[in-house]
Every structure is written in structure tokens, then in C-alpha cells.
Amino acid sequence: MTKEIRLAKQKRRNQKIAFGVFQFTSYTVVGLLFVILSFIVIKGISVISWEFISEMPKEGMTQGGIFPAIVGTLCLVFGSMIFAFPVGVLAAIYMNEYVKDGWMKKIIKQMTNNLAGVPSIVFGLFGMALFVNKLEFGDSLLAGSLTLGLLVLPVVIRTTEESLKSVDDTFRQASLGLGASKWQTTSKVVFPIAFPNIITGLILSIGRVSGETAPILFTVAAYFLPKLPTSIFDQAMALPYHLYVISTSGTNIEASRAMAYGTALILIIIVLISNLLANALRKYFGKKVKMN
């Protein structure tokens, strides 16, 4: 009995140690995030004003606002999601629901995983070679959006696959047993249940696309363009590249540094708002699934 009590105490002690380590790690991550955000807010809040958000840049981007960069970033995020989200979701549905387990499926999954690990600058070079030069889109929103869409495509595919796998097979079997076709089962039963979790891929993709510099450097970003794009074949400014340029320009360092912090704060706010909207969308569809 004494030995059993001692073992039970040891298990409880080990459990407390493990929970303590997990708790410390979680608080450390949250603390680091809070420190980073606080630093950006403190440094950038003094620059934020209506003029800074709504005006065109002036004097080599050391004065004026960042409105074209904000619009360009939103256009790139929207354009890349139009391409990556439908293509990625459909590819994942095909892979998970239609392709049988075998060597071909394993190869495709491995290639998708490898594609997710390719550096973003390689995607930028590929986008320049294919979209800018070969297809003759030029430095444009179209070329930049397609390049960014390719960049986040593996993320969308993987998160969609995991969401589809989380749907219990009993739903599929019940639907097929009632006479529904494979496509009806997938589109009317499996996909609606998995869709709230599929939105996670959208959230991750928006966060990554918003902050990428290397791909747009080769395909769309303009150094100084105090006007708004009027078509998908126009160049555009973007917040990540704007932030990079004014941080490394070396002219009027104090003004550039202040604007850099303000730009970083605006970029964080855009990503935060996008994530909140996507989360609200996920909760909305999640409630509809529970009600049905």
C-alpha cells in the first residue's frame, strides 16, 4: 500500500511539473508577443493620424501618408486569396475524398509539404520568371497576387485536408447509404461540417500574405508610387515593401524610422482586423453546422 501511495504521489508530482512547464511556456510566448506589440505601439502611435493613413507619400516617402501602400496590400491579400483559397480547397477535397491511399497520394502529399518549406524569395523569382516575363503580365497586381497565392497554397491544402479528416466517417456512410452520390455527400455533408475549420487556413494565409516582402519585390512592388492602381496590370505600393524601403533608405533617418514604426503598426492592425473577421466567419458557420 505504501508503495502504491508513493507511486501515486510521484505521478501527481510529475504531472504538476509537466503542467508547470507547459504553463510557463505559454505565458512566455504570450509575454513575448505582448512585448513586441507594445514596442511597436509605443514607437508608432505618435505617427498615426488621419493624414498618415489617407494621404499620398511625399518627399521620397519621408513625409505624407501611406494610403497607396494600404490599398496595395489589401488588393494583394484579396487577389491572392481569390486564387489560393478555391484552388487549395478543391485540391484538398480531391486528395482526401477521391484519391485512394497509395504511392501516388503519398508523393503528392510529400511534394505539398516540400512546397510549404520553399523560401518565399524562391517563389518571388519563380513568379518573376513565369508571370512577369513568360506570361508578360509585367510588374502588376495580377503577377503579385498569383505569386502570393502559390506561396500560401500548401497552407490552404494542408489545413483543408486536416479539417476534412476530422469529419467522422459515419456521416459519409450514412449519406451514401441513403443513396446520395459521392459528390453530393462531399458537397452537402462533409464540406459544410469541415468548413468552419477550413477557415483556419484562410486566417493563416492572410497573415502570411500580408507580411511577405520577397515575392512582391520581384513581381509588383513599386519604390515610390503616389497614386492608386486602376487595374490588375498596374504596379502598386505595399506595406511590407514600403516598410523595408524606408527602414533601409538611409535618408532623413529620424523621419524614416518614425514612419517605419507607424507603417508596422498599421500592418499589424490590418492583419488583426482580417483575422478577427475570419474568426467571426468561422464562428458563424460553426453555429450553423450545430443548428443543422
Rank of each mutant, 00 (worst) to 15 (best):
T170G: 01
G144H: 03
L141R: 04
Q173F: 12
S187Q: 09
M128N: 13
A174P: 04
V87R: 01
V189K: 01
F137D: 04
V190G: 03
G127C: 00
I121E: 02
S80T: 07
L142V: 11
K106M: 14
L90P: 00
F123P: 11
N197D: 15
S181T: 15
I108P: 02
I157R: 03
F131H: 03
I193A: 13
A180V: 02
L141H: 10
L90N: 11
V89A: 12
L142Y: 00
V122L: 13
K182W: 00
D168Y: 00
A143H: 02
C75G: 00
T185Q: 12
F195D: 03
G102C: 05
G144C: 06
Q173R: 12
R158A: 13
K134S: 14
Q173K: 12
L141Q: 08
E162W: 00
I93P: 03
V167K: 06
A180S: 15
M128G: 04
G179A: 10
R172W: 05
D168M: 06
A92G: 04
V118W: 01
K105A: 12
V87F: 09
L90F: 13
V156R: 05
G117R: 07
S145H: 06
D168W: 01
G124C: 02
E97M: 03
L150H: 02
A116L: 13
T112K: 07
A194P: 05
V118P: 02
K134Y: 14
V118N: 00
A92E: 02
N96V: 13
F126L: 15
P196V: 11
W183I: 15
T170I: 14
